[in-house]
């Protein structure tokens, strides 16, 4: 199949782009999801506003507290960017799991987030890290936490006249480590279940723990009550096993062609124990 007809607009500045986007005039980032949807005629926008001609939107910078990733930074450039690798390593680790290299060369960070696919790793990572998204429109700018931006499957807090300009990700503190793992049928395929976690410690004692589930339900889900299981305790495999029971009790239970509810519960139990172990091990080897 081929896309239906549309008008193509190529603004050179963000201001021009904001004049052009609206109800059925949609931003085009890397197109790695949108053009597939257009080829299948699931998406038939009247106009596309191509953002690739706006160089400001691809910048990745460190402002001391946050790593700011331009929405149009390609996934391939972001996963190899030294600022990202050093200060927000989970973002690089996560991007390596998105599609394939041949997709990530054109796929963008902002495009992935604005598409808000429930099986995508990146929204969950942004929720885990407490990132903020910066949105612009002719009415002005606003910032919104990742957890509020992702409202459901392919549904976000973006208004039709808004463009996601950049993402501010808090830099990893020396006392923090994070990890991600997922269950997939084949390399590069959609995840059946996934988990991301961040742990903060003081010596061997846990100060803060957060675990987010993805690829199930309609948006990233933060496991509730995890701090009461882990905080103040010495981090070890026993506490992770207890935490994984908590995750299993909260993991969405439904059957589909990928897995039964019971299998899903077991996958989440195993993944969450593993992801916490992996996070913890990163402290031991002193790596990020």
């Amino acid at each position: 199949m081929r896309p239906a007809t549309f008008e193509y607009l190529a603004p050179k500045t963000l201001e021009e782009a904001l004049e052009l986007v609206g109800d059925d005039s949609r931003p085009l980032a890397g197109g790695q999801s949108l053009i597939a949807l257009m080829n299948l005629r699931f998406a038939t926008p009247e106009a596309l506003v191509d953002l690739q001609g706006i160089p400001d939107l691809t910048r990745i910078s460190d402002d001391g507290e946050f790593i700011r990733i331009g929405a149009m930074a390609s996934q391939a450039d972001t996963e190899t960017n030294s600022i990202v690798l050093n200060s927000v390593p989970l973002v690089a680790e996560c991007i390596r799991e998105i599609g394939h290299w041949q997709i990530r060369t054109r796929g963008t960070v902002g495009g992935n987030l604005a598409h808000s696919d429930p099986a995508s790793e990146l929204p969950a990572v942004m929720v885990t890290l407490g990132a903020h998204y910066h949105l612009a429109s002719k009415r002005g700018e606003r910032k919104i936490p990742a957890v509020e931006f992702h409202q459901g499957a392919y549904d976000t807090a973006l208004d039709p006249d808004e463009i996601l300009t950049h993402i501010a990700v808090p830099k990893q503190k020396p006392t923090e480590r994070s990890a991600l793992n997922e269950s997939v049928r084949a390399a590069g395929a959609y995840a059946i279940a996934g988990t991301t976690s961040i742990l903060e410690r003081n010596n061997e004692t846990c100060l803060r723990a957060k675990l987010v589930l993805f690829a199930t339900g309609s948006k990233p889900y933060e496991v509730q009550g995890l701090n009461s299981v882990l905080v103040g305790k010495e981090l070890n495999s026993g506490s992770f096993s207890e935490a994984s029971e908590l995750v299993a009790s909260q993991a969405p239970h439904f059957d589909d062609f990928h897995a039964t509810a019971e299998q899903r519960k077991q996958i989440f139990r195993a993944l969450s124990e593993r992801v916490l172990q992996e996070t913890w091990q990163k402290f031991q080897v002193g790596s990020s």
Binding site: G31, Q32, I35, A36, N39, D50, G99, Q102, I103
Partner: peptide, 29 residues
């Protein structure tokens, strides 16, 4: 496949491999 999964249409754009079925010709301007 024409939706980016199979990789048969992969070409090199500015030195990087990319799916030509998920790229509008005008994006290669």
């Amino acid at each position: 496949c024409s939706y980016g999964v199979c990789g048969a249409c992969t070409v090199i754009i500015d030195g990087k491999p990319a799916r030509s079925c998920l790229t509008l010709a005008i994006q290669a301007n």
